[in-house]
Simulated assay, not measured.
Amino acid sequence: MRFDPAPADPFALAGRRVHEAEGRGRRAFALFQAARHPGPLVWILPRHAPEIPMLRGLPCGVGERLHLLRPTSETDLLWCLEETLRAAPIGLVIAEPEKPLSLTAGRRLQLAAETGRTTGLLLIQQGAGSPATETRWTCEPEPGERRDSTLHRWALNKNKKRTTGSWILDEHGATAAFHMVSAVGERRQPAGAAR
């Protein structure tokens, strides 16, 4: 299997694909992505979800483009997600499913993203990932020395086309440190010499 070289921007989500983010910092990752994607933004979360994005607390330019959808059931959420991914003018679709997706449901979402030329980001519960998604990120707050700054560790744990990695970011999205290649992918000698 051959991997593409790492892009200059490790946080760029491949277009026409569906990605996943898990962990306590998954919404911060979603807002970071929302600020980077041009065009209309759609955030789909269950009607009974206790927390919703507050327009005044969103990054500059995001609130004006954001549309919230609050379906009543998981089936309706998946239907909204698939139909929104098919809508060509949408820049980014963020959804918060409560249950793990089946392979069939995940594949349907990938096909919808390809059809609509839209990027999808699922904010999933820990360990509830779908094998059909392009990438899976684990996003957690990171303890830091400064009390006025919130550091985050964003780890790319699954990537169908490139290497994985882990980055520590400050509140502005600037990388403080990173490791591009996972320990499993490191090789100290040629492949044929190992015994």
Rank of each mutant, 00 (worst) to 15 (best):
L103R: 13
A155F: 01
G63L: 00
A177E: 15
G57V: 01
H48E: 13
E145V: 13
E140D: 10
T72N: 11
N157L: 14
L45T: 10
R36D: 00
P46K: 07
N157F: 00
G57S: 01
P190Y: 10
R2S: 12
A87G: 07
G57L: 07
R47Y: 11
H67V: 13
R147C: 13
Q125A: 15
P143R: 09
F32W: 14
A112F: 05
R65I: 05
P97I: 08
G116I: 06
T104Q: 14
A88E: 11
E145P: 11
E64A: 13
W154H: 01
H19L: 04
Q189S: 15
G165Q: 02
E64V: 05
G25N: 04
T75Q: 09
L55Y: 13
R147G: 15
L66T: 01
R153V: 05
G129A: 08
R195L: 13
L92Q: 02
L78G: 06
C80F: 10
G61K: 04
W167C: 06
I168S: 10
P71D: 03
R26D: 04
F3P: 00
R17I: 02
A34I: 02
G165M: 04
E83L: 09
I44S: 04
A155S: 14
G15V: 03
I124Q: 09
K161N: 09
V42F: 03
A113C: 01
L122W: 07
S130A: 08
L66M: 11
P89C: 07
A34C: 08
I44A: 06
E96N: 05
A176H: 15
G192L: 15
T163Q: 11
G106P: 04
L123F: 06
G39C: 02
C60D: 14
L101A: 01
P190Q: 14
I94W: 00
L101E: 00
A176I: 15
I94P: 00
G15R: 10
L13W: 02
P59L: 05
L77Y: 08
A14D: 11
R146Q: 14
T118P: 04
R65S: 05
G23W: 01
A34G: 02
F11N: 03
G39L: 03
L156I: 06
E186L: 15
L92G: 00
K99E: 13
P7M: 03
A8F: 10
H48V: 10
A6F: 08
N159C: 12
I44Q: 04
R107G: 04
L169I: 12
G144Q: 05
R136W: 06
Q33E: 09
C80L: 07
E145G: 11
Q125I: 09
F32I: 02
R162Y: 01
T75V: 10
R27A: 11
D9G: 08
V18Y: 06
G91R: 02
L92K: 01
T163A: 14
E142V: 01
R17A: 14
T163H: 13
R188V: 09
W137F: 07
L68V: 09
H67R: 12
S102H: 05
T150C: 10
Q189N: 11
P97R: 05
A6P: 09
A12H: 06
A88P: 06
G57W: 02
A132M: 04
H172M: 12
E83M: 12
R162E: 07
